[in-house]
Design a protein around this nucleic acid. Structure first.
Length: 561
RNA sequence: UGGGGUGUAGCCAAGCGGUAAGGCAGCGGGUUUUGAUCCCGUCAUGCGAAGGUUCAAAUCCUUCCACCCCAGCCA
């Protein structure tokens, strides 16, 4: 990927030192998603970090599903996550791994801790356990089962495994320190009873390890050298290390934490995204309005743009909120360089060119891209009647308006300069047709009389074009930080996050667009053919063009994205 | 003094004792058959605050302040 000059982030500095000192022979990282939902832009940051680190330091990155909680996990999510990773362009080292691959070892290690007097089966209920745990400021107290014999705990654990006890009736806990300032060290739970079918192990287990009792050991088994996670796990590091020190693990990984990504006008929480999907606020996990990888993919974002964005925002331990304009810049930059140009009229207004023969048509040629010769040119039919956008004509306007005005000239992009003469209105006073004239010999030339057009507008021929619907997306939330304060984020949904513009008119070639193919509709924005509704011709607006005119013309209007 | 973490421009972010990189956004200008792109310029006498050490401090020390995370048998 990009090896542009950039200062090393704090993790790269640590790894560089470890490699130079010999503390690390070969870097091994891992991306450990739980298969309980779709990946989102926050995961993309972690993915780019872990896989990127492996790439730049000539190491390896594992893909490991952290599947310790069958209650919330599904095989379908495993598949979706794999698909997203491949799409982003990353390759994991070796086979896909699962925490559940190591359940047998974890069980033996649990027995080991019991035998060492460092773990015990506890019969406290969840509620009782909470009371015994103490509070943030007060120490907890010992469970009455804390001094149970190793023999008894071993037997009980075995019977928990065999399904002899009800869910919630017993747990296995580490024996550490009930008065520790860090609550994670107050005899944390290692195993809980869950009589659930697991998507990988089926009905083999009735007990499942907790995150804490699994993660560090998974890392150690796989030889992970640098285990990178988000800030909220920093409090778990002492426990992570406690297991590494007290278990016969084959290696000693180290945990490092970085700040998770927050984006304004966006929710990046699997729980909240799932709620939006489950309650039908959006159209599924790949709805183009939500920040899932699948959503961005369908919206027309490219893998490169997402990776570029992750590069732009950096990696630190401070938690901030990144403005979406950064992501928007990344995708505009990519699509500007790489997408073919086309013309599409969203709000058609007929223009009759009165001095153009009614039985004449031409086939004009236009560049596929203003500064790339490798993209093929396209053919634009031209005739006596064309359509332009309603916003591109006014009967009269001031000098700042660089579009069609009666008595003034404008260029039809890639075609003639025209001059408007009159307009026809309906009973309500709406303009329904414009009469204009073509200025002769102006394809590729300026008018011979020296009167240059005010501007350039896009158009489509009346006699030959294709029609389709365009889906215009705006931000999903009305607030920069949805759900902040005491407002429910579900109350801050932008009612205009999706608007469908029917019967748009595009140049003929658009009818052959491939599913997912991106275009710049000139003067409008970047659009891609929808991949889900493949029977119809539908385009999704990925992102509008930057619009300095729109800003000064209507500063109060909501920003179009 | 419960534990952990973070404060550099509107936002992200370099900086690691030698006099505040870069990007996004904004603003001004130039080029342009896209009001796009591109190009040029501009944008922190100051780094959460106050003291101190030093010839020299965003960087070291002290105190204070603000914000984030933790009391799931979630991850």
């Amino acid at each position: 990927m990009s090896t542009e000059e950039r200062p090393l982030n704090f993790l790269e500095q640590i790894i560089k030192k470890d490699l130079e000192s010999g503390a690390t022979n070969k870097l091994v990282t891992r991306f450990p998603p739980e298969p309980n939902g779709f990946l989102h832009i926050g995961h993309a940051k972690a993915i780019c970090l872990n896989f990127g680190l492996a790439e730049t330091f000539d190491g390896a990155c594992h893909l490991r599903f952290d599947d310790t909680n069958p209650e919330k996990e599904e095989a379908a999510y495993v598949e979706a996550i794999k698909k997203d990773l491949v799409w982003l362009g990353f390759k994991w080292e070796g086979d896909i791994r699962y925490a559940s691959n190591y359940f047998d070892t974890f069980y033996q290690w649990a027995q080991h801790l019991i035998n060492e007097g460092k773990a015990y089966v506890c019969d406290l209920s969840a509620e009782q356990a909470r009371e015994y745990r103490g509070t943030l400021k007060e120490a907890g107290k010992h469970s009455p089962f804390r001094e149970r014999s190793a023999e008894e705990s071993t037997d009980l654990l075995e019977r928990m495994k065999n399904g002899e006890f009800d869910e919630g009736s017993k747990v296995l806990r580490a024996k550490i320190d009930m008065s520790h300032g860090n609550i994670n060290m107050r005899d944390p739970i290692l195993y809980r009873i869950r009589k659930q079918n697991h998507h990988q192990t089926g009905d083999k287990w009735c007990i499942y390890p907790t995150y804490d009792f699994a993660h560090g050991q998974e890392d150690a088994i796989e030889g992970i050298t640098h285990s990178i996670c988000t800030l909220e796990f920093a409090d778990h590091r002492p426990l992570y290390e406690w297991f590494i020190e007290n278990l016969p693990v084959p290696s000693r990984p180290r945990q490092y934490e970085f700040g998770r990504l927050n984006l304004d006008y966006t929710v990046t929480s699997k729980r909240k995204l799932k709620q939006l999907v489950d309650e039908g606020v959006v159209d599924g996990w790949d709805d183009p309005r939500i920040p899932t990888i699948a959503g961005y993919r369908r919206r027309g974002y490219t893998p490169q743009s997402i990776r570029k964005f992750c590069e732009m925002i950096g990696v630190t331990k401070s938690d901030g909120v990144v403005e979406v304009s950064m992501l928007e810049h990344a995708i505009r930059d990519d699509l500007d360089k790489n997408s073919a140009r086309a013309m599409c009229v969203l709000h058609p207004l007929k223009v009759v060119l009165t001095n153009y023969d009614s039985d004449k048509t031409e086939l004009l040629s236009a560049a596929g891209h203003p500064n790339r010769e490798d993209l093929p040119t396209r053919e634009l039919p031209f005739g006596r009647e064309v359509y332009i956008d309603q916003a591109d004509f006014r009967e009269e306007a001031n000098k700042k308006y660089k579009r069609l005005v009666i008595g003034k000239r404008v260029r039809l992009r890639g075609a003639y300069v025209i001059e408007a003469d009159s307009a026809t209105k309906d009973e309500q006073g709406n303009i329904i047709e414009v009469q204009a004239r073509v200025i002769p010999n102006t394809v590729g030339n300026n008018p011979e009389d020296g009167i240059k057009p005010k501007g350039v507008i896009h158009w489509v021929a009346a006699h030959q074009h294709c029609k389709f619907d365009v889906y215009l997306y705006d931000r999903l939330f009305t607030e920069a930080q949805p759900g902040s304060g005491d407002t429910d984020f579900m109350q801050q949904i932008n009612p205009e996050s999706l608007s469908i513009q029917k019967d748009c008119m595009g140049e003929p070639g658009l009818a052959n667009a491939e599913l997912g193919q991106s275009f710049q509709f000139e003067r409008e924005g970047y659009f891609c053919r929808d991949t889900q509704q493949s029977d119809a011709l539908i385009f999704n607006r990925t992102i509008s063009l930057k619009d300095s005119w729109g800003k000064q013309a209507a500063p109060a209007a909501p920003k179009k994205t």
